[in-house]
Nucleic acid binder design. Structure first.
Length: 577
RNA sequence: UGGGGUGUCGUCAAGUGGUAAGACACAGGAUUUUGGUUCCUGCAUUCGGAGGUUCGAAUCCUCCCACCCCAGCCA
């Protein structure tokens, strides 16, 4: 098995790696480390799964072990091939390779059935005719013990016969189940004679109509782990009180391989949800365009948004692994993608909200090509030519008729630098007579400052990005913001569910953006830094050579925005005091 | 009121009886043809609380408090 290699990172330390190191030291597994990533193919993978994937594949790689990809496909009603394909694609994209270790719980259905028969034979399982509702009532409550099913004392022969007939399709859907015979008075509800097989007259995406009974998770999972000779079965916290059951099955069946289950806290990210159920809901309700909507924390969404696998792996490493319920600040994820893209993204100039600028003293018929650096972090990425002419566009945000304190950018009478081009000075502001909106600026340029340097050493406080009006390309840019307005949308303490906290402004589409001509024919999914704005990638679904569409992956850190916000707060505070 | 877990900086998170790592965030400052990057600096006398053991406690003991998970024929 090969695994993505992050050369810069040391192997992290966490309680799971400590447990494994200890097990290795005490020779619990004869030196083997085998993990598995066991998704149920009932939805798309999200950032929380990435944590688990990095953990399982990472641990295997660090210990010279292997990690299996196993689909936990024991519930045909919810599972689909579309999901297994997407999951494989996402794991591969994240940078992990399961080699020939691709398995399905459904591969083991026959073995699992035989194990169940064995349990029946040893008197540890019985066929129960209670309805789902009756089973629930017999189970008792959190504080009261349950009571035995009237079918609990059926003979082994009768159970064997009934179970076989369940398999052969003799009974109605849901009419009978096979249950483990454990302890109806256990404080752990999972031990109160859990159902291990149910009748489901449903077509399975891999086994077709071969089966009409399907094993439950608790039964299938531990045995699948054992069959694959997993050494450490790593899962999330909610399975902690399933562990006694996990161990019970393996003990009762005398399994020769008894993996150790270890639980860790699942990932929660601020301003989003990491629950397949909730994500599916967003898709179904049309709040997003699909599982791969760039606002989704799914791997396909993050990929389309412009995130790199490296950044997600780095993120998984930085959040650590522990047992505490927590919510990781999404700013950390954003930091990871900025850090990665800062080193590798080609710089380019693009104007999102164009403001027309006419350089009055620049000849009308002239055009010159100025040299621009592709990536100051990596001189090896070279330079490119950017056309300059008399009519340009700059960012509307880069001009203020009445500049506030600390605003360094263009204003009437002020001189600024156009990146890689010239110093320009604003002389005249043209406004719309009706609305008063600034529609055009008239400026002069200093021919002595070509390339952006002044021979007399005079300084300007701002450098602006720009684009030549006649040479620029039109583009659509999609600006994304957090999907939810609340740090923890899943917190229902205020009486509302996560739907109430959907950010209505999570997508803003800009249709009249202008980008420099070097972007012509930009490849789908390619990533760029639009200087001074952020990182953007070519949308892999909607962009074409005729109509460029960019997704904003993440903004650059914006010190001015912070200053402005602070000024705003101060003004409000002064006004109200 | 049953069972299983968890509490260390705003957010993650090391720490395993020898005197509180690191990251993000935040706040200053330096450098800068991106208000980007980079670089410095600051940011837990204290580890949910109270007692106790010890020369010494986030680490051990006792009690208490808070929060999370479990009553699917889901995983």
């Amino acid at each position: 098995m090969k695994t993505a290699n992050d050369t810069t990172s040391a192997i992290p330390s966490d309680f799971i790696r400590n447990i494994i190191a200890e097990d290795l030291k005490t020779n619990k597994t004869r030196g083997r480390v085998v993990t598995r990533f066991p998704p149920e193919p009932n939805g798309y993978l999200h950032i929380g799964h990435a944590k688990s994937i990095c953990l399982n594949f990472g641990i295997a790689a660090e210990n010279g072990g292997i990690c299996n990809l196993r689909f936990d496909d024991t519930n045909p009603i919810k599972e689909e091939v579309e999901y297994v394909e997407s999951i494989k694609e996402d794991v591969r994209w994240l940078g992990f390779d399961w080699g020939d270790r691709l398995f399905y719980a459904s591969d083991y259905f026959e073995q699992l059935y035989q194990y169940a028969v064995q349990l029946v034979k040893s008197g540890k399982a019985y066929v129960c005719d209670l309805s789902a509702d009756e089973i629930r009532r017999y189970r008792g409550t959190l504080t009261e013990p349950g009571k035995d099913s009237p079918y609990r004392s059926r003979s082994v022969e009768e159970n064997l016969d009934l179970f076989e007939r369940m398999r052969s399709g003799e009974f109605e859907d849901g009419s009978r189940v096979l249950r483990a015979k454990i302890d109806m008075a256990s404080g752990n509800l999972n031990m109160r004679d859990p159902v291990i097989y149910r009748i489901l007259l449903a077509e399975h995406h891999r086994t077709g109509d071969k089966w009409c009974i399907y094993p439950m998770y608790d039964f299938a999972h531990c045995l699948s782990d054992s069959i694959e000779r997993i050494t450490h079965s790593i899962c999330t916290l909610e399975f902690e009180d399933h562990r006694p059951l996990y161990d019970w099955f393996l003990d009762e069946l005398n399994a020769d391989c008894h993996p150790r289950q270890v639980e860790f806290a699942r990932l929660n990210l601020s301003y989003t949800v990491t629950s397949k159920r909730k994500l599916a809901h967003l898709v179904e309700q049309g709040h997003v365009t699909g599982w791969d909507d760039p606002r989704m924390p799914t791997l396909s969404g993050l990929r389309r948004r412009g995130y790199t696998p490296e950044s997600i792996r780095k993120f998984a490493e930085r959040i650590g692994v522990a047992k505490k319920d927590s919510i990781v600040d999404i700013a950390l994820l954003e930091h990871c993608i900025r850090e990665d893209l800062n080193e590798r993204a080609t710089r380019v100039m693009g104007v999102l909200r164009p403001l027309r600028v006419v350089i009055d003293n620049y000849p009308e018929d002239r055009m010159e090509e100025l040299e621009a650096i592709n990536n100051p972090e990596d001189p090896g990425m070279g330079t490119r030519k950017v056309p300059f002419s008399r009519v340009l566009y700059i960012e509307r945000d880069d001009f203020r008729e009445e500049p506030p304190k600390k605003f360094f950018r263009l204003a009437p009478g002020r001189e600024v630098r156009l990146r890689y081009a010239y110093f320009i000075t604003c002389l005249e502001v043209v406004k719309d007579q009706q609305t008063g909106e600034v529609v055009e600026l008239h400026c002069t340029y200093d021919p002595e400052t070509r390339g952006g340097w002044s021979p007399d050493g005079r300084k300007v406080k701002a450098t602006l990005h720009w684009v030549s009006a006649a040479h620029s390309l039109k583009a659509e840019v999609r600006m994304y913001d957090h999907l939810f307005t609340k740090t923890n949308p899943s917190d229902e303490k205020d009486g509302a569910d996560f739907n109430a906290y959907l950010n209505q402004n999570s997508l803003e589409t800009l249709n009249s953006c202008c980008v420099e001509p070097s972007l012509a024919g930009a490849a789908p999914a390619s990533r760029y830094q639009f200087e001074r704005l952020g990182y953007f990638c070519v949308d892999s679904v909607d962009s074409s050579d005729e109509a460029l569409v960019f997704n904003r992956t993440v903004t650059l850190r914006d010190t001015w925005a912070k200053i402005e916000k602070a000024q705003m707060r101060r003004t409000i505070a002064d006004g109200s005091s």
